[in-house]
Nucleic acid binder design. Structure first.
Ligand SMILES: [Zn+2]
Ligand SMILES: [Zn+2]
Ligand SMILES: [Zn+2]
Ligand SMILES: [Zn+2]
Lengths: 150, 150
DNA sequence: AATAAGTTGAGAGCTATTCTCAATAAGGAA
DNA sequence: TTCCTTATTGAGAATAGCTCTCAACTTATT
């Protein structure tokens, strides 16, 4: 509810870049995503196709990376295999991830003090913060019981 | 200084796996690594070759993954391109990473309260903790000054 | 409307990582 | 120790996520 197409355009133009229909629709898609959903490049392509919007994979890859580097999206390494993305939201909605390394089941959790600690660390070194993510790798209760090694 | 070959063997055998010279030497290499060093699979292959130890890339990839899933190594996504690994150490040596998304310059920092918060979160959900890593994506002072967009 | 420069789409290209499988070696049992 | 079972290794092929290339097109600006 925060980031309008106009704001995106302003931020792009400021750097000599342009607002395209593809970029606008990608932002909109992530903003409308259900809580807890994380899309890979191909996922996004499929979601867009379902909505009748055709955007090429090249363009999707390019813009996921671009928007992550602008701090608009977060780039996550949840399961093995491919990167996943979600919208990068400030404090009340900001969250972290607890991941089972065996089945990839992922739990989101909030912790504002961790977020604050991250922001403080970045500032102290003069870094401009884009994203702060606590990632916990663990084995979920189900996989602990399964006895299958690794 | 903590993890002996015997301890590695015990933990492997417990799961029906075996201690091989390759596994022993990989563990030893990571234990002797300088603070702040993070090796990719190919890096490790080269380091081993320099020490006169020939281990195939297949074996290296397999065992990096295995040892990460055992909680012995940490699998990190520092720069783009490939995964990097380091030994997973407990509290006094445990640390997190602040990464410039443009030049990949990485700073390690410690924060025990973040580590504790992660451990608490895993426990609360019944997960068995393997690794807890706070990753901060940001733009370093040098890259902020460079004016080159993204 | 004209211009300059950024962006897109299609497909080729790249490369980190995984897979396959025959040969080998570790661990447990006798 | 010796034997047996099964995990592991190494070499190379295969996979796949992602990037690159470039002509056609679109955006922002004047
Ligand atoms: Zn999330
Ligand atoms: Zn699980
Ligand atoms: Zn480190
Ligand atoms: Zn930098």
């Amino acid at each position: 509810m925060a980031y309008t197409p106009a704001a995106l355009k302003a931020e792009l133009n400021e750097r000599g870049w342009r607002l395209t229909p593809q970029r606008e629709i990608i932002l909109e898609t992530f903003q409308n995503l259900a809580k807890g959903e994380h899309l890979s490049a191909e996922d996004l392509r499929d979601v867009l196709k379902d909505e009748g919007e055709q955007v090429s994979l090249s363009t999707i890859y390019r813009n996921l990376k671009l928007m992550a580097r602008m701090g608009i999206l977060r780039e996550l390494e949840l399961a093995e295999g491919q990167k996943r993305y979600e919208i990068n939201q400030p404090s009340p909605h900001h969250h972290h991830h607890l991941i089972c390394v065996r089945c990839s089941k992922t739990i989101e959790f909030k912790n504002d003090s961790v977020l604050k600690a991250g922001a403080r660390t970045a500032k102290k070194s003069g870094y401009h913060l884009l994203d702060c993510q606590l990632t916990i790798h663990a084995v979920c209760p189900t996989c602990q019981r399964s006895l299958l090694p690794v």
